[in-house]
């Protein structure tokens, strides 16, 4: 249930992100989701990609600062109240979340990527409430 997310330190310099997406494209790596947490000087790019280990390797080789982080993907219905219900469960169970971001796919569902201190706990809680979780096979390229 744990998904590997790629985190990249990016200086706010013109073309730096394009350089990165170019490298992933050249290596035939698909990006399923991404978000950027930015400050005045730098950003932290977080991505779910098809082949995280390979992506990390090629990016490092090209001088990027990369880290693989464990996250959980929670699948929710793409309709009003869907996200609220999921978050209610998490907060009722006192699970602290570091950050999250979401992406919707075409099939009336949305996926919320969650990073939390205790991923095992969040998996337990969500599964206990019959919430659907993203599986490796859903995003990883084979």
């Amino acid at each position: 249930m744990i998904i590997k997310q790629l985190s990249v330190f990016l200086e706010n310099k013109t073309g730096r992100l394009t350089e990165l997406t170019g490298i992933l494209a050249d290596n035939d790596i698909n990006i399923s989701a991404f978000s950027i947490a930015d400050t005045a000087d730098y950003g932290i790019l977080r991505m779910i990609v098809g082949r995280p280990e390979l992506a990390a390797e090629v990016l490092k080789k090209n001088g990027f600062t990369v880290k693989i982080t464990d996250v959980v993907g929670m699948i929710i219905p793409h309709r009003p109240g869907g996200l609220h219900k999921a978050l209610q469960i998490i907060s009722d169970n006192n699970v602290a979340i570091d950050y999250m971001y979401a992406f919707a796919s075409g099939d009336c569902k949305a996926t919320v990527v969650i990073r939390a201190e205790s991923l095992d706990k969040i998996i337990d809680v969500l599964q206990g409430h019959k919430m659907e979780l993203l599986k490796k096979g859903d995003v990883y390229q084979v």
């Binding site: 330190f9 400050t39 932290i44 977080r46 600062t65 880290k67 982080t69 570091d98 990073r115």
Partner: peptide, 15 residues
């Protein structure tokens, strides 16, 4: 320059 092994993907850590 940040040291690669200390790179955290959380803004609060880097800040």
């Amino acid at each position: 320059e940040i040291e690669e092994e200390f790179f955290s993907d959380e803004v609060k850590e880097l800040e």
